Amino acid sequence: MSNFPGLRNPVVANQNPNKSVEVVQPPSDSVSSLSFSPKGNFLVATSWDKEVRCWEILETGSLNSVPRAMISHDQPVLCSTWKDDGTTVFSGGCDKQVKMWPLMSGGQPFTVAMHDAPVKQLAWVPEMNLLVTGSWDRTLRYWDTRQPNPVHIQQLPGPCDALTVQHPLMVVGTRTADRNLVIFNLQNPQIEFKRITSPLKYQTRCVAAFPDQQGFLVGSLEGRVGVHHIDDSQQSNNFTFKCHREGNMLYSVNSLNFHPVHHTFATAGSDGGFGFWDKDNKQRLKAMARCSQPIPCSTFNSDGSIFAYATCYDWSKGEECYNPATAKTHIFLHKPQESEVKAKPRTGTSIRK
């Protein structure tokens, strides 16, 4: 087990200590997912207020957000993803359905997938022209959106909490006592490739496949991230490191995002902090100042020039710590500097044992 070096994030009672650009007209309740279009700076947020919102982010010297469209579900919305051509958004949640929204053509949303419990994760796989949906009903389902029934239902060892795809690699994090991570080779999607126990001791919150498909990151409730390779011959390169912690306080790692150009990655957590890391050189590149509320989700845009993150109360400290006067929802846009997200030469002193 290793520590990335660097100073702890400073604790500040500030909604926006990093002077990020705030998105206008944010949701009225906590944000559950953020996703950028792969073809332009269109940002979609899903929320516990049952809404799916889209903004266009304009880069005209500074960043500006323009609300473009919004649709509703019958229950809180938990997840979203885009089709690879940037025309269409998928959203799923507690109403147990997935809606397909032809956003760019101005079309109306319609249901394309159903589960027996809330839908927690979505992934569009362009290589297969299929939508993968993960649910708390302990199944993955693969959908051809032109057909009413799934083309395959895959049983899972527990409720699906996390999902990541870099074709042909897919990794699913499940909520089980032994913290199962299920690995699939999507060239043979109906058979588990491998099932492992998470290298972390507590419940999995998020996973992110390496851009080269050779492994994945996993984040958990304990403020720790695991770096794990698929090939058994690479197991000596696996390690875990501490991140979203303050003294004896452990905070959930809620989001893991690889930079689309530099292939470094960002973490965001319930401590209100986010930062940028280099797994290959085992270095922390930049720790940003902590916001006064947790960060439940984050994402890069398609070229990595914008990092979007939400702040809101995430109920991790229970109802007794909820203060409606301060628990406002915000979505922020950060423009990473190259020094924050581009790998630096390894120094040999980058890890504290």
Rank of each mutant, 00 (worst) to 15 (best):
A343N: 12
G61Q: 12
K342Y: 05
F307Y: 14
M114K: 11
R141E: 11
S292H: 09
A327E: 07
V21Y: 13
A310N: 02
V151F: 00
C79Q: 06
C160A: 13
E59I: 14
T145E: 09
P76Q: 11
G173P: 02
C94K: 12
R346S: 13
A266G: 05
T349P: 06
K282Q: 15
R146L: 10
V227G: 01
F239L: 03
V171A: 02
D161R: 08
N3T: 12
R205N: 15
S302A: 15
Q234V: 08
W82I: 08
V132T: 06
D84T: 09
K242I: 09
D74N: 12
L43T: 05
V225L: 03
D212H: 10
L285R: 03
L131M: 04
I71C: 03
L43D: 05
R352Q: 14
T349I: 12
N188P: 12
P27V: 09
F239W: 15
T139C: 11
N238M: 03
T139Y: 02
W277I: 14
S30Y: 04
R68K: 12
G272T: 01
G40F: 11
K286Q: 07
G318V: 07
M249D: 13
A113F: 03
G269L: 02
D280N: 14
V112Q: 01
E192D: 07
L221M: 09
K317F: 12
T176I: 07
T329I: 10
I191Y: 05
E59M: 03
H244N: 07
K99R: 15
I295A: 00
T60K: 15
S30A: 13
M70I: 12
L285Y: 09
I71E: 02
G6K: 11
H334W: 14
Y142K: 03
P324V: 11
P118K: 07
L103I: 05
Y313G: 00
N149G: 00
G219W: 06
S28P: 04
V119G: 09
A162Q: 10
K201F: 10
E246H: 08
T176R: 01
Q187R: 15
Y309T: 06
D231T: 15
T88G: 14
V44K: 06
T299G: 08
V44T: 06
S33K: 08
V23D: 10
D178L: 15
T81W: 09
Q283R: 10
S135R: 04
E319W: 14
F216P: 00
L131T: 04
H334S: 14
P168S: 01
L122F: 02
D271Q: 00
R68L: 15
T329K: 13
G158D: 14
H263A: 03
E246G: 10
Q203K: 07
